[in-house]
Computed example of a mutant assay.
Amino acid sequence: MVKVQKNVRTPDQEILKLVKQLEAQHKHCVGYDKMTRLIKRERLSYTVNKKRVMRIMKEHNIKADYRQPKRKRVQEQETYEAQNTLNRQFEQAAANRVWVTDTTESAYNIRKYKVRLHVVLDLYGQYLLSWIITPTETSTGAIKVFQMAKQKAGGLAP
């Protein structure tokens, strides 16, 4: 018959004590991976691996209480969608009836700098009415290019 001493701690109990101590010391923000590394620093007489620490923490419901990273939430920008009046009929019978616009971004100097090209086209002859290059893509560039097209054509297209 083998006598078991009551004061002798099993390795799991000793690890649990260390886990609770380190949790309090690190303000409950240590997961099993970092906890294993911290326990290995204690130079115990037996080996401690991640699975063992994970099992002990799971059995005693010890979890890392860490703050979720904040998300940068940009307010949704308003988008304006016009009715599809062309129905993909891009061939026009007269000038200054339909204008279309586009903005294209171009990078230069090994993609360090970017510029935006805003253009307005007349669909009748598919020729350029006006264009402008801006450093940023904003609505002011699009408005300005339409104002330039209005001055050149003598009015806005219907």
Rank of each mutant, 00 (worst) to 15 (best):
117 L>R: 05
85 T>P: 03
10 T>W: 12
12 D>G: 10
31 G>C: 07
16 L>D: 02
54 M>R: 02
124 Y>S: 08
148 M>C: 01
116 R>G: 01
62 I>V: 06
118 H>V: 05
39 I>F: 14
21 Q>S: 02
52 R>S: 03
17 K>I: 11
116 R>H: 08
79 T>V: 01
7 N>G: 15
101 T>R: 04
9 R>H: 12
132 I>A: 15
7 N>D: 15
9 R>P: 06
22 L>C: 06
78 E>F: 11
62 I>L: 06
21 Q>E: 07
129 L>F: 11
40 K>T: 12
122 D>Q: 10
30 V>M: 09
105 E>W: 08
104 T>L: 14
87 N>H: 07
69 P>L: 12
79 T>S: 03
2 V>D: 11
131 W>P: 09
93 A>Q: 11
56 I>K: 00
83 Q>L: 10
146 F>I: 12
129 L>G: 03
108 Y>P: 06
41 R>P: 03
108 Y>W: 12
75 Q>V: 11
57 M>D: 00
3 K>A: 10
158 P>Q: 07
46 Y>K: 15
120 V>D: 01
133 I>H: 14
61 N>I: 12
24 A>D: 03
15 I>N: 06
73 R>K: 03
131 W>A: 13
1 M>T: 11
19 V>C: 06
61 N>V: 07
12 D>E: 13
81 E>A: 02
133 I>L: 15
114 K>L: 00
151 Q>T: 00
105 E>S: 09
129 L>T: 08
85 T>V: 05
94 A>D: 03
61 N>S: 10
54 M>W: 08
52 R>Y: 01
98 V>G: 02
66 Y>P: 01
82 A>G: 05
109 N>S: 15
60 H>G: 04
142 A>K: 03
17 K>H: 14
21 Q>M: 06
